[in-house]
Design a protein around this nucleic acid. Structure first.
Lengths: 219, 219
DNA sequence: CCTTTCGTGTCACTCGGTGTCAAGCAGTCA
DNA sequence: TGACTGCTTGACACCGAGTGACACGAAAGG
Protein backbone atom coordinates (compact mmCIF):
# COMPACT_ATOMS: atom_id res chain seq x y z
CA UNK A 1 0.00 0.00 0.00
CA UNK A 2 0.90 3.67 -0.28
CA UNK A 3 2.55 2.46 -3.43
CA UNK A 4 3.26 5.06 -6.05
CA UNK A 5 2.79 8.04 -3.78
CA UNK A 6 5.69 10.50 -3.87
CA UNK A 7 5.74 9.36 -7.41
CA UNK A 8 7.74 7.61 -10.06
CA UNK A 9 9.60 4.93 -8.09
CA UNK A 10 12.47 5.17 -10.53
CA UNK A 11 10.77 6.21 -13.71
CA UNK A 12 12.24 3.65 -16.07
CA UNK A 13 10.63 0.38 -15.04
CA UNK A 14 9.66 -1.40 -18.25
CA UNK A 15 6.08 -2.63 -18.16
CA UNK A 16 5.04 -4.19 -21.47
CA UNK A 17 1.36 -3.50 -20.89
CA UNK A 18 1.94 0.27 -21.04
CA UNK A 19 2.30 1.87 -24.46
CA UNK A 20 5.62 3.30 -25.56
CA UNK A 21 4.18 6.77 -25.91
CA UNK A 22 2.84 6.67 -22.38
CA UNK A 23 6.21 5.53 -21.03
CA UNK A 24 7.90 8.38 -22.85
CA UNK A 25 5.48 10.82 -21.32
CA UNK A 26 6.17 9.46 -17.85
CA UNK A 27 9.88 9.68 -18.48
CA UNK A 28 9.70 13.35 -19.41
CA UNK A 29 7.46 14.09 -16.42
CA UNK A 30 9.88 12.25 -14.16
CA UNK A 31 12.86 14.13 -15.55
CA UNK A 32 11.10 17.48 -15.09
CA UNK A 33 10.07 16.66 -11.54
CA UNK A 34 13.56 15.57 -10.54
CA UNK A 35 15.20 18.60 -12.12
CA UNK A 36 12.71 20.93 -10.46
CA UNK A 37 13.05 19.34 -7.03
CA UNK A 38 16.82 19.42 -7.15
CA UNK A 39 17.03 23.02 -8.34
CA UNK A 40 14.28 24.36 -6.09
CA UNK A 41 15.65 22.71 -2.98
CA UNK A 42 19.11 24.07 -3.68
CA UNK A 43 18.46 27.59 -5.00
CA UNK A 44 15.07 28.40 -3.51
CA UNK A 45 11.75 28.78 -5.26
CA UNK A 46 12.06 32.31 -6.64
CA UNK A 47 15.66 31.97 -7.76
CA UNK A 48 14.85 29.22 -10.26
CA UNK A 49 13.17 30.03 -13.58
CA UNK A 50 11.04 27.61 -15.54
CA UNK A 51 13.50 27.91 -18.39
CA UNK A 52 16.25 26.55 -16.17
CA UNK A 53 14.12 23.63 -15.03
CA UNK A 54 13.14 22.78 -18.58
CA UNK A 55 16.67 23.11 -19.94
CA UNK A 56 18.04 20.98 -17.12
CA UNK A 57 15.47 18.31 -17.95
CA UNK A 58 16.40 18.58 -21.63
CA UNK A 59 13.16 19.99 -22.98
CA UNK A 60 11.83 23.42 -23.92
CA UNK A 61 9.90 25.82 -21.72
CA UNK A 62 6.82 25.20 -23.84
CA UNK A 63 7.00 21.49 -23.12
CA UNK A 64 7.21 22.16 -19.40
CA UNK A 65 3.78 23.75 -19.58
CA UNK A 66 2.42 20.73 -21.43
CA UNK A 67 3.13 18.70 -18.31
CA UNK A 68 2.56 21.16 -15.48
CA UNK A 69 0.22 24.11 -15.15
CA UNK A 70 2.66 26.26 -13.20
CA UNK A 71 5.95 26.24 -11.37
CA UNK A 72 4.14 25.51 -8.13
CA UNK A 73 2.35 22.62 -9.78
CA UNK A 74 5.53 20.56 -10.17
CA UNK A 75 5.82 20.32 -6.43
CA UNK A 76 2.18 20.25 -5.40
CA UNK A 77 1.35 17.64 -8.04
CA UNK A 78 3.29 15.15 -5.94
CA UNK A 79 0.60 15.46 -3.30
CA UNK A 80 -2.33 14.93 -5.63
CA UNK A 81 -2.40 11.19 -5.06
CA UNK A 82 -2.53 11.71 -1.33
CA UNK A 83 -5.85 13.51 -1.50
CA UNK A 84 -7.32 10.91 -3.78
CA UNK A 85 -6.14 8.12 -1.50
CA UNK A 86 -7.73 9.83 1.46
CA UNK A 87 -11.04 10.22 -0.25
CA UNK A 88 -11.27 6.68 -1.54
CA UNK A 89 -10.24 5.30 1.85
CA UNK A 90 -13.08 7.22 3.48
CA UNK A 91 -15.46 5.99 0.82
CA UNK A 92 -14.60 2.36 1.47
CA UNK A 93 -14.91 2.46 5.25
CA UNK A 94 -17.97 0.65 6.62
CA UNK A 95 -20.88 3.03 7.04
CA UNK A 96 -21.57 2.05 10.62
CA UNK A 97 -18.10 3.13 11.70
CA UNK A 98 -17.86 6.22 13.87
CA UNK A 99 -16.97 9.33 11.83
CA UNK A 100 -13.86 9.83 13.94
CA UNK A 101 -12.60 6.31 13.22
CA UNK A 102 -13.37 6.57 9.52
CA UNK A 103 -11.67 9.96 9.23
CA UNK A 104 -8.65 8.74 11.15
CA UNK A 105 -8.31 5.82 8.76
CA UNK A 106 -8.62 8.19 5.82
CA UNK A 107 -6.05 10.71 7.03
CA UNK A 108 -3.76 7.87 8.01
CA UNK A 109 -3.26 7.03 4.33
CA UNK A 110 -1.27 10.13 3.29
CA UNK A 111 0.48 10.26 6.67
CA UNK A 112 1.59 6.67 6.29
CA UNK A 113 2.88 7.53 2.83
CA UNK A 114 5.09 10.17 4.44
CA UNK A 115 6.36 7.65 6.94
CA UNK A 116 7.19 5.23 4.14
CA UNK A 117 9.27 7.68 2.13
CA UNK A 118 10.71 9.89 4.83
CA UNK A 119 13.58 11.50 2.96
CA UNK A 120 11.70 12.39 -0.20
CA UNK A 121 8.47 13.38 1.54
CA UNK A 122 10.30 15.47 4.09
CA UNK A 123 12.20 17.56 1.56
CA UNK A 124 9.00 18.26 -0.36
CA UNK A 125 6.97 19.10 2.73
CA UNK A 126 9.65 21.36 4.14
CA UNK A 127 10.02 23.11 0.80
CA UNK A 128 6.27 23.72 0.70
CA UNK A 129 5.97 24.94 4.28
CA UNK A 130 8.94 27.27 3.76
CA UNK A 131 7.69 28.83 0.50
CA UNK A 132 4.62 31.08 0.68
CA UNK A 133 3.70 30.60 -2.97
CA UNK A 134 3.84 26.83 -2.62
CA UNK A 135 1.97 26.93 0.66
CA UNK A 136 -0.82 28.86 -1.03
CA UNK A 137 -1.20 26.26 -3.75
CA UNK A 138 -1.00 23.47 -1.22
CA UNK A 139 -3.76 25.06 0.84
CA UNK A 140 -5.88 25.39 -2.30
CA UNK A 141 -5.40 21.67 -2.81
CA UNK A 142 -6.36 21.05 0.79
CA UNK A 143 -9.50 23.11 0.33
CA UNK A 144 -10.48 20.74 -2.48
CA UNK A 145 -9.82 17.76 -0.24
CA UNK A 146 -11.99 19.33 2.45
CA UNK A 147 -14.77 19.78 -0.05
CA UNK A 148 -14.54 16.15 -1.14
CA UNK A 149 -14.35 14.81 2.39
CA UNK A 150 -17.33 16.97 3.32
CA UNK A 151 -19.44 15.50 0.50
CA UNK A 152 -18.34 11.98 1.27
CA UNK A 153 -19.07 12.39 4.95
CA UNK A 154 -22.47 13.93 4.30
CA UNK A 155 -23.33 10.97 2.09
CA UNK A 156 -22.23 8.53 4.78
CA UNK A 157 -24.41 10.19 7.40
CA UNK A 158 -27.35 10.97 5.14
CA UNK A 159 -26.96 14.69 5.76
CA UNK A 160 -27.10 17.67 3.42
CA UNK A 161 -23.59 19.05 3.12
CA UNK A 162 -24.91 22.53 2.37
CA UNK A 163 -27.47 22.67 5.15
CA UNK A 164 -25.58 21.02 8.00
CA UNK A 165 -22.43 22.37 9.58
CA UNK A 166 -21.27 19.02 10.95
CA UNK A 167 -19.82 17.40 7.81
CA UNK A 168 -17.75 20.42 6.89
CA UNK A 169 -16.59 20.88 10.46
CA UNK A 170 -15.62 17.24 10.82
CA UNK A 171 -13.72 17.25 7.53
CA UNK A 172 -12.03 20.50 8.52
CA UNK A 173 -11.00 19.12 11.88
CA UNK A 174 -9.53 16.01 10.32
CA UNK A 175 -7.48 18.17 7.96
CA UNK A 176 -6.50 20.39 10.86
CA UNK A 177 -5.06 17.30 12.50
CA UNK A 178 -3.33 16.42 9.22
CA UNK A 179 -1.84 19.88 9.08
CA UNK A 180 -0.70 19.94 12.68
CA UNK A 181 0.97 16.57 12.28
CA UNK A 182 2.69 17.69 9.10
CA UNK A 183 4.05 20.79 10.86
CA UNK A 184 5.32 18.86 13.85
CA UNK A 185 6.79 16.13 11.67
CA UNK A 186 8.51 18.69 9.46
CA UNK A 187 9.79 20.63 12.46
CA UNK A 188 11.29 17.46 13.91
CA UNK A 189 13.03 16.76 10.57
CA UNK A 190 11.12 13.51 10.28
CA UNK A 191 12.40 12.06 13.51
CA UNK A 192 8.99 11.75 15.15
CA UNK A 193 6.66 8.98 14.08
CA UNK A 194 3.95 10.67 12.01
CA UNK A 195 1.37 7.98 12.68
CA UNK A 196 1.83 8.25 16.41
CA UNK A 197 1.45 12.02 16.11
CA UNK A 198 -1.73 11.55 14.12
CA UNK A 199 -3.16 9.23 16.76
CA UNK A 200 -2.36 11.83 19.40
CA UNK A 201 -4.04 14.53 17.37
CA UNK A 202 -7.16 12.47 16.87
CA UNK A 203 -7.29 11.72 20.56
CA UNK A 204 -7.70 15.46 21.03
CA UNK A 205 -10.30 16.14 18.37
CA UNK A 206 -12.28 12.90 18.65
CA UNK A 207 -14.65 14.10 21.40
CA UNK A 208 -16.26 16.59 19.01
CA UNK A 209 -16.47 14.18 16.14
CA UNK A 210 -18.27 11.56 18.20
CA UNK A 211 -20.53 13.75 20.33
CA UNK A 212 -24.00 14.05 18.85
CA UNK A 213 -25.48 16.46 21.39
CA UNK A 214 -23.89 19.58 19.97
CA UNK A 215 -24.90 18.70 16.46
CA UNK A 216 -27.84 20.78 15.19
CA UNK A 217 -30.73 18.58 14.15
CA UNK A 218 -32.23 20.86 11.52
CA UNK A 219 -31.89 24.25 9.84
CA UNK B 1 -16.86 48.19 17.52
CA UNK B 2 -15.80 46.46 14.31
CA UNK B 3 -15.24 50.02 13.19
CA UNK B 4 -13.04 50.45 10.18
CA UNK B 5 -13.22 46.85 9.09
CA UNK B 6 -14.13 46.42 5.42
CA UNK B 7 -12.18 49.61 5.18
CA UNK B 8 -12.30 53.26 4.37
CA UNK B 9 -15.81 54.24 5.51
CA UNK B 10 -15.92 56.87 2.79
CA UNK B 11 -12.31 57.81 2.40
CA UNK B 12 -12.63 61.58 2.57
CA UNK B 13 -13.44 62.33 6.20
CA UNK B 14 -11.31 65.33 7.18
CA UNK B 15 -9.43 64.71 10.39
CA UNK B 16 -7.09 67.58 11.22
CA UNK B 17 -4.78 65.40 13.30
CA UNK B 18 -3.77 63.39 10.22
CA UNK B 19 -1.20 64.92 7.89
CA UNK B 20 -2.17 65.97 4.40
CA UNK B 21 0.23 63.49 2.82
CA UNK B 22 -1.27 60.66 4.81
CA UNK B 23 -4.79 61.67 3.78
CA UNK B 24 -3.70 61.71 0.15
CA UNK B 25 -2.27 58.24 0.48
CA UNK B 26 -5.49 56.97 1.99
CA UNK B 27 -7.46 58.64 -0.77
CA UNK B 28 -5.46 56.93 -3.50
CA UNK B 29 -5.67 53.59 -1.69
CA UNK B 30 -9.42 54.04 -1.35
CA UNK B 31 -9.81 54.92 -5.01
CA UNK B 32 -7.76 51.90 -6.09
CA UNK B 33 -9.72 49.56 -3.84
CA UNK B 34 -13.07 50.82 -5.05
CA UNK B 35 -12.07 50.64 -8.70
CA UNK B 36 -10.69 47.14 -8.25
CA UNK B 37 -13.73 45.86 -6.39
CA UNK B 38 -16.15 47.29 -8.92
CA UNK B 39 -14.25 45.95 -11.94
CA UNK B 40 -13.42 42.56 -10.46
CA UNK B 41 -16.98 41.91 -9.31
CA UNK B 42 -18.34 42.83 -12.73
CA UNK B 43 -15.79 41.34 -15.15
CA UNK B 44 -14.25 38.55 -13.08
CA UNK B 45 -10.75 38.31 -11.69
CA UNK B 46 -8.84 37.20 -14.77
CA UNK B 47 -10.59 39.53 -17.18
CA UNK B 48 -9.34 42.66 -15.43
CA UNK B 49 -5.75 43.86 -15.81
CA UNK B 50 -3.89 45.93 -13.28
CA UNK B 51 -3.53 48.64 -15.90
CA UNK B 52 -7.31 48.93 -16.08
CA UNK B 53 -7.67 49.16 -12.33
CA UNK B 54 -4.96 51.81 -12.10
CA UNK B 55 -6.30 53.84 -15.00
CA UNK B 56 -9.82 53.69 -13.60
CA UNK B 57 -8.50 54.98 -10.30
CA UNK B 58 -6.59 57.71 -12.13
CA UNK B 59 -3.05 56.55 -11.41
CA UNK B 60 -0.36 54.60 -13.23
CA UNK B 61 0.33 50.89 -13.04
CA UNK B 62 3.57 51.62 -11.21
CA UNK B 63 1.69 53.49 -8.52
CA UNK B 64 -0.68 50.56 -8.04
CA UNK B 65 2.28 48.44 -7.00
CA UNK B 66 3.33 51.10 -4.53
CA UNK B 67 0.09 50.44 -2.66
CA UNK B 68 -0.53 46.74 -3.22
CA UNK B 69 1.83 43.84 -3.70
CA UNK B 70 -0.35 42.05 -6.24
CA UNK B 71 -3.76 41.99 -7.84
CA UNK B 72 -4.94 39.53 -5.23
CA UNK B 73 -3.67 41.80 -2.50
CA UNK B 74 -6.23 44.52 -3.23
CA UNK B 75 -9.00 42.16 -2.21
CA UNK B 76 -7.31 40.16 0.52
CA UNK B 77 -5.95 43.32 2.14
CA UNK B 78 -9.50 44.12 3.19
CA UNK B 79 -9.39 41.10 5.47
CA UNK B 80 -6.11 41.96 7.12
CA UNK B 81 -7.81 43.90 9.92
CA UNK B 82 -10.01 40.93 10.68
CA UNK B 83 -7.07 38.73 11.56
CA UNK B 84 -5.51 41.41 13.71
CA UNK B 85 -8.81 41.96 15.51
CA UNK B 86 -9.10 38.27 16.20
CA UNK B 87 -5.65 38.02 17.63
CA UNK B 88 -5.93 41.05 19.89
CA UNK B 89 -9.32 39.91 21.12
CA UNK B 90 -7.85 36.56 22.11
CA UNK B 91 -4.95 38.33 23.80
CA UNK B 92 -7.27 40.43 25.95
CA UNK B 93 -9.52 37.60 27.16
CA UNK B 94 -9.07 36.68 30.81
CA UNK B 95 -6.56 33.87 31.19
CA UNK B 96 -8.83 31.74 33.34
CA UNK B 97 -11.44 31.59 30.60
CA UNK B 98 -11.93 28.21 28.90
CA UNK B 99 -10.05 28.03 25.57
CA UNK B 100 -13.31 27.39 23.74
CA UNK B 101 -14.92 30.51 25.18
CA UNK B 102 -11.88 32.65 24.46
CA UNK B 103 -11.59 31.36 20.90
CA UNK B 104 -15.29 31.87 20.30
CA UNK B 105 -14.97 35.46 21.43
CA UNK B 106 -11.97 35.93 19.16
CA UNK B 107 -13.56 34.45 16.04
CA UNK B 108 -16.75 36.35 16.80
CA UNK B 109 -14.94 39.62 16.02
CA UNK B 110 -14.46 39.14 12.26
CA UNK B 111 -17.79 37.34 11.97
CA UNK B 112 -19.57 40.24 13.64
CA UNK B 113 -17.82 42.57 11.22
CA UNK B 114 -19.41 40.61 8.37
CA UNK B 115 -22.81 40.89 10.00
CA UNK B 116 -22.36 44.65 10.36
CA UNK B 117 -21.51 45.29 6.72
CA UNK B 118 -23.45 42.56 4.99
CA UNK B 119 -23.52 43.91 1.44
CA UNK B 120 -19.87 44.87 1.19
CA UNK B 121 -18.54 41.88 3.10
CA UNK B 122 -20.69 39.47 1.15
CA UNK B 123 -19.52 40.64 -2.25
CA UNK B 124 -15.90 40.38 -1.18
CA UNK B 125 -16.30 36.97 0.43
CA UNK B 126 -18.19 35.56 -2.53
CA UNK B 127 -15.59 36.95 -4.92
CA UNK B 128 -12.83 35.27 -2.92
CA UNK B 129 -14.57 31.91 -2.58
CA UNK B 130 -15.34 31.90 -6.30
CA UNK B 131 -11.82 32.78 -7.50
CA UNK B 132 -9.10 30.14 -7.01
CA UNK B 133 -6.25 32.65 -7.08
CA UNK B 134 -7.93 34.79 -4.42
CA UNK B 135 -8.82 31.75 -2.36
CA UNK B 136 -5.18 30.73 -2.36
CA UNK B 137 -4.04 34.09 -1.02
CA UNK B 138 -6.85 34.13 1.50
CA UNK B 139 -5.82 30.71 2.77
CA UNK B 140 -2.24 31.93 3.06
CA UNK B 141 -3.54 34.73 5.22
CA UNK B 142 -5.53 32.28 7.29
CA UNK B 143 -2.41 30.18 7.79
CA UNK B 144 -0.76 33.25 9.31
CA UNK B 145 -3.75 33.76 11.58
CA UNK B 146 -3.53 30.15 12.66
CA UNK B 147 0.11 30.61 13.50
CA UNK B 148 -0.63 33.71 15.57
CA UNK B 149 -3.56 32.14 17.36
CA UNK B 150 -1.43 29.09 18.08
CA UNK B 151 1.30 31.21 19.70
CA UNK B 152 -1.20 33.27 21.65
CA UNK B 153 -3.01 30.17 22.88
CA UNK B 154 0.21 28.45 23.86
CA UNK B 155 1.19 31.52 25.89
CA UNK B 156 -2.20 31.55 27.61
CA UNK B 157 -1.88 27.92 28.62
CA UNK B 158 1.80 27.95 29.39
CA UNK B 159 2.49 25.35 26.70
CA UNK B 160 5.19 25.10 24.08
CA UNK B 161 3.56 25.71 20.69
CA UNK B 162 6.16 23.60 18.92
CA UNK B 163 6.09 20.65 21.29
CA UNK B 164 2.36 20.36 22.01
CA UNK B 165 -0.28 19.55 19.46
CA UNK B 166 -3.16 21.08 21.40
CA UNK B 167 -2.61 24.81 20.71
CA UNK B 168 -2.29 24.31 16.97
CA UNK B 169 -5.24 21.95 16.88
CA UNK B 170 -7.42 24.32 18.89
CA UNK B 171 -6.51 27.28 16.69
CA UNK B 172 -7.11 25.20 13.59
CA UNK B 173 -10.49 24.06 14.81
CA UNK B 174 -11.55 27.62 15.57
CA UNK B 175 -10.56 28.66 12.05
CA UNK B 176 -12.33 25.61 10.66
CA UNK B 177 -15.48 26.91 12.33
CA UNK B 178 -14.77 30.35 10.90
CA UNK B 179 -14.41 28.86 7.46
CA UNK B 180 -17.52 26.72 7.66
CA UNK B 181 -19.56 29.69 8.81
CA UNK B 182 -18.19 31.84 6.01
CA UNK B 183 -19.13 29.18 3.45
CA UNK B 184 -22.66 28.76 4.78
CA UNK B 185 -23.16 32.51 5.11
CA UNK B 186 -21.91 33.08 1.57
CA UNK B 187 -24.04 30.25 0.20
CA UNK B 188 -27.12 31.76 1.84
CA UNK B 189 -26.32 35.14 0.26
CA UNK B 190 -26.03 36.65 3.71
CA UNK B 191 -29.54 35.75 4.76
CA UNK B 192 -28.47 33.57 7.69
CA UNK B 193 -27.22 35.20 10.86
CA UNK B 194 -23.46 34.61 10.89
CA UNK B 195 -23.17 34.88 14.66
CA UNK B 196 -25.86 32.27 15.20
CA UNK B 197 -24.04 30.03 12.74
CA UNK B 198 -20.81 30.53 14.60
CA UNK B 199 -22.43 29.62 17.91
CA UNK B 200 -23.79 26.46 16.30
CA UNK B 201 -20.35 25.62 14.94
CA UNK B 202 -18.70 26.10 18.30
CA UNK B 203 -21.33 23.96 19.94
CA UNK B 204 -20.02 21.16 17.73
CA UNK B 205 -16.31 21.66 18.24
CA UNK B 206 -16.36 22.77 21.90
CA UNK B 207 -16.19 19.24 23.38
CA UNK B 208 -12.65 18.78 22.06
CA UNK B 209 -11.49 22.21 23.06
CA UNK B 210 -12.61 21.75 26.64
CA UNK B 211 -11.74 18.10 27.20
CA UNK B 212 -8.37 17.73 28.86
CA UNK B 213 -8.19 13.94 28.87
CA UNK B 214 -7.13 13.60 25.25
CA UNK B 215 -4.47 16.22 25.63
CA UNK B 216 -0.97 14.82 25.80
CA UNK B 217 0.76 15.91 28.97
CA UNK B 218 4.32 15.84 27.69
CA UNK B 219 6.49 15.04 24.67
C1' DC C 1 14.52 81.69 -2.79
C1' DC C 2 16.77 77.52 -2.67
C1' DT C 3 17.10 72.81 -1.26
C1' DT C 4 15.46 68.54 0.26
C1' DT C 5 12.10 65.20 0.28
C1' DC C 6 8.46 62.50 -1.26
C1' DG C 7 5.07 60.65 -4.46
C1' DT C 8 4.44 59.89 -9.06
C1' DG C 9 4.86 58.75 -14.25
C1' DT C 10 7.69 56.86 -17.91
C1' DC C 11 10.58 53.53 -19.68
C1' DA C 12 12.82 49.27 -19.99
C1' DC C 13 13.33 44.76 -18.50
C1' DT C 14 12.55 39.83 -16.63
C1' DC C 15 9.64 36.10 -16.05
C1' DG C 16 5.27 33.37 -15.98
C1' DG C 17 2.05 31.64 -19.05
C1' DT C 18 -0.46 30.90 -23.71
C1' DG C 19 -1.57 30.52 -28.79
C1' DT C 20 0.18 29.27 -33.17
C1' DC C 21 2.61 26.90 -36.55
C1' DA C 22 5.79 23.94 -38.71
C1' DA C 23 8.75 19.96 -38.17
C1' DG C 24 9.65 15.22 -36.57
C1' DC C 25 8.21 10.65 -35.71
C1' DA C 26 5.25 6.38 -35.13
C1' DG C 27 1.73 3.62 -37.08
C1' DT C 28 -1.40 2.36 -40.96
C1' DC C 29 -2.96 1.32 -45.39
C1' DA C 30 -2.01 0.70 -50.20
C1' DT D 1 8.18 2.37 -50.98
C1' DG D 2 5.14 6.14 -50.42
C1' DA D 3 1.22 8.79 -48.72
C1' DC D 4 -1.84 9.71 -44.95
C1' DT D 5 -2.86 10.42 -40.03
C1' DG D 6 -2.21 11.63 -35.31
C1' DC D 7 0.69 12.95 -31.64
C1' DT D 8 4.61 15.36 -29.44
C1' DT D 9 7.79 18.83 -29.63
C1' DG D 10 10.49 23.27 -30.39
C1' DA D 11 10.54 27.91 -32.09
C1' DC D 12 8.42 32.18 -32.07
C1' DA D 13 5.42 35.86 -30.86
C1' DC D 14 2.65 37.73 -27.59
C1' DC D 15 0.29 39.30 -23.15
C1' DG D 16 0.23 40.52 -18.37
C1' DA D 17 2.42 40.56 -13.73
C1' DG D 18 5.95 42.58 -11.25
C1' DT D 19 10.52 45.37 -10.58
C1' DG D 20 14.38 48.72 -11.03
C1' DA D 21 16.05 53.18 -12.57
C1' DC D 22 15.43 57.83 -13.39
C1' DA D 23 13.46 62.24 -14.05
C1' DC D 24 9.82 65.46 -12.89
C1' DG D 25 6.79 68.33 -9.94
C1' DA D 26 4.79 69.66 -5.59
C1' DA D 27 5.14 70.40 -0.85
C1' DA D 28 7.92 71.34 3.35
C1' DG D 29 11.67 73.61 5.56
C1' DG D 30 15.63 76.54 5.96
Amino acid sequence: MTRGAWGYDDGVSSRPEVSLAERKRQLVAHELTEAALRLLAREGFDAVTIDEIATTAGVSKRTFFRYFASKEDVVVQLLADLGAGMRTELATRPTDEHPSAALLAAVRVPIAACGDHVDRALSVVQLILRTPALLGRFLERQAQWREELTRELADRLGLDADAELYPRLAAGMALTAFDAVLHRWSASDGREDPIALLDDAFAVIAPSLDATDGRPSAN
